Computed example of a mutant assay.
Amino acid sequence: MFDVIMVPVDGSEYGYRAADVAIEIAEKFSSKIAAVHVLEEFSFNSYDDEEDSGDEILAKITEKASGAGVEVVEHLLTADPLRDMKFIVGQTRADLVVIHAHGANNNRFVSFEDNNVSDTQIGSVSERLLRTCDVPVLLVK
């Protein structure tokens, strides 16, 4: 049913939760995972630090999926997540996108308690994908 399941991960607990759901679905449908981490085009951090962090995030997904017998293709990209995520979905040839509702924002992770985030709010990248993506999008809270 799903050959490639794309999961964007940002290093937040919500991103890892979405990856867990993607891995579970991939197990059931013998799918591959396209794990995507986007390095922001304009960051105040050094590119090397951002790249190392992205590699670590993707390695965690690959390790967990490998333990479940699921193949992962890692994608570490420099882009604008809000603008480019639909294009990235097409490039990974994903049949399904599993994305978290909330995540990192300028390296400060969203906390429902600290920021009074309601259960009905979603992040801008997730919201844009829900509106524009040509493949099914599973939103994980």
Rank of each mutant, 00 (worst) to 15 (best):
D3R: 12
V4D: 12
V4F: 09
I5N: 02
M6H: 07
P8C: 02
V9Y: 09
Y14C: 07
Y14F: 09
Y14G: 05
Y14K: 05
R17M: 05
R17W: 01
A18F: 00
A18R: 02
V21D: 08
E24I: 03
E27M: 12
E27G: 02
K28C: 08
F29A: 15
S31N: 07
I33K: 09
I33G: 00
A34L: 05
A35I: 02
V36A: 03
L39R: 15
E40N: 14
E40A: 11
D48G: 06
D49I: 09
D49L: 13
L58R: 12
K60E: 09
K60G: 08
A65N: 14
G69P: 11
G69T: 03
V72F: 06
H75Q: 11
L77V: 09
I88L: 06
I88V: 01
Q91R: 15
T92A: 10
T92H: 07
A94K: 13
A94I: 03
V98P: 01
I99E: 03
G103D: 04
A104G: 13
R108Y: 11
R108W: 06
F112S: 10
N115Q: 12
N116G: 07
D119Y: 07
Q121C: 06
Q121D: 13
V125S: 04
V125M: 05
S126A: 15
E127C: 01
L129Y: 11
L129F: 03
L130V: 07
C133D: 12
C133T: 14
D134G: 11
V137I: 14
V140A: 02
